[in-house]
Computed example of a mutant assay.
Amino acid sequence: MANKSHLKYYAILLLFLTFGNSGMAQDLEKTSMYSVFNGKTLESWKIPDGGEWSVKNGKIIAKNNPEKKGSILWTDESYNDFVVQLDFKMISGNIDSGIFMRGEDKQNPQIQIGISGSLKRDMTGSPYVPGASYPVEAKNINKLLRLKGWNTIKALAVNNKYTVWLNGEEVMNYTMDNANLHGPVGLQLHPGREMEIHFRKIVLGKL
């Protein structure tokens, strides 16, 4: 579990969200958000071997090593229902990253950031499910995604429903059958790539 003395700030976030095609409104009142990145170290995270992850000037830097090794940076803590928000910036190379929602297996989606290796095009904001590829595609990404600047992505998991916002606009919602409803959050550095991506301002709220 994260060391609370290193959680630098708290914020109050009022969310009015709509899930799926059912139009069922969920009023998530005043969700308390806390930092899971203190801007200085990777405390609160399980650091992979290999040196692909580092911290500099308040940013987490993910960069493939010469062997193009990839890895996943996992939170120490696991979650049930939660919302996570972070900033990301695509620095160089063929960006293929994402946010793992509740672990890595066929019962959990990964929210894509960057180019899909299978589809060979940008699928930012879309859920990737092993064995099912991308069951839905995020909307308006071409208009919203800043290729040379910072982007803010927010991803919500409530039961088996997932919603994503990019730079303040809702772009995706997806209901997954037989979802695993408990697990850690992960940031991906895809193997077999030459790429660098930065992350900052990572906050999370339990629901």
Rank of each mutant, 00 (worst) to 15 (best):
K46D: 14
K46H: 14
I47F: 14
I47W: 13
P48N: 14
D49A: 15
D49E: 15
D49I: 11
G50S: 08
G50E: 12
G50V: 08
E52Q: 12
W53R: 05
S54Q: 13
V55I: 12
K56M: 11
N57C: 03
N57F: 05
K59A: 13
K59V: 09
A62K: 02
A62M: 12
N65W: 12
P66W: 15
P66T: 14
P66C: 14
E67S: 10
E67R: 12
E67N: 13
K68Y: 10
K69Y: 09
K69E: 12
G70T: 08
S71M: 09
S71V: 03
S71Q: 05
I72D: 06
I72H: 03
L73E: 07
L73W: 09
W74S: 02
W74M: 05
T75K: 06
T75F: 05
T75I: 08
D76W: 00
D76E: 15
E77T: 11
E77A: 10
S78R: 06
Y79C: 03
Y79F: 15
D81H: 03
D81N: 14
F82K: 05
V83F: 11
L86V: 06
F88P: 01
F88D: 02
F88K: 01
F88G: 01
K89T: 03
K89F: 09
M90Y: 02
M90K: 05
M90N: 00
M90V: 00
I91M: 10
S92L: 04
G93K: 03
N94V: 04
N94H: 09
N94T: 07
N94M: 06
I95M: 07
I95C: 05
D96I: 02
S97P: 06
S97H: 09
S97T: 08
G98L: 05
G98T: 00
I99F: 04
F100V: 03
M101K: 01
M101A: 04
R102V: 00
R102Q: 05
G103W: 09
G103L: 08
D105H: 10
K106F: 00
K106H: 05
Q107L: 09
N108S: 15
P109N: 07
P109K: 08
P109R: 09
Q110R: 01
I111S: 03
I111T: 11
G114Q: 03
I115V: 15
S116A: 11
G117M: 01
S118Q: 12
L119R: 12
K120A: 07
K120G: 00
R121A: 09
M123S: 02
M123H: 02
M123Y: 04
Y128E: 08
V129K: 07
P130D: 12
G131I: 13
S133V: 14
S133G: 15
Y134C: 06
P135M: 14
V136F: 13
A138I: 06
A138W: 07
A138H: 00
K139M: 14
K139W: 11
N140C: 08
N142V: 04
K143A: 04
K143H: 10
L144Y: 09
L145Q: 02
L145S: 00
L145P: 04
R146E: 15
R146V: 06
L147M: 07
K148M: 13
G149L: 13
G149R: 10
G149Y: 11
W150Y: 12
T152G: 01
A155L: 07
L156A: 09
L156F: 13
A157Q: 03
N159Y: 13
N160A: 07
K161F: 02
Y162H: 07
T163C: 13
